[in-house]
Amino acid sequence: MSECISMPSIDRSSAQWFTAAAAIFRKDWQSELRTRYAISALIMFVVSTIAIVIFAIGSESIPSDVLTGMLWVIIFFSSMSGLSRTFVAEEERGTVLTLQLLASPSVVLGGKLAFNFVLVLSLNIFAVALYSLLVSEFLIVTLSIFWITILLGSMGLAAAATIIAAIIAKANTKGTLFPVLSLPILLPLLVVVINATRLAGEGAPFEDAVREFQFLIAYIVVVVTVSQLLFDYIWTD
């Protein structure tokens, strides 16, 4: 016999890997557009929390660093309401075996991560637009710092939420476990993005936020690497 294949299997080329991950990404978007489960939950959460913030502020004058903190509170809890859906839905529909037959664990993780990233980035852009429109005292001076923070923050949120969603999908108490597990893992990310957003609001030069960006990139690299190592065990048995 010329070729011997035994477990674990590794897909041969990276082109194949991207094709398969893209297929999972497209499938998840099509599914989401039809069921609107995560999108509806995320939008409802953003709108209702911003409304509560506006009612709470009233006519008071709130310092800008508190307002930037509030923006990330809205983003964090909104993300918690929808990002777990990507794996929980596969578990609830009983389609985990289907995906296991079709693709390697790293491909599944890649496709789901890409889906969660696009979802959370869209949510964050929507939340920022609505927050800026309704909270008049929320001002951003250094736009470059702000948008890079939103981009890297979304990537970090998606990376951590994806692997936590894969873990909690196997548990019985999925809904409550997701924010409980997410908070300690996301806390360092939240501290840094809040600080970077504060710098953007104060009009700090771009150089002042470089350390924050370095931290965010390191955080993403670490979380994605650990996720790839961990996911085989979570997904296979």
Binding site: K27, Q30, S31, R34, R93, G94, T95, L97, T98
Partner: peptide, 11 residues
Amino acid sequence: VSPYLNLYDEF
């Protein structure tokens, strides 16, 4: 083919 295999209902 298995009783445990499910396909995507929305598709």
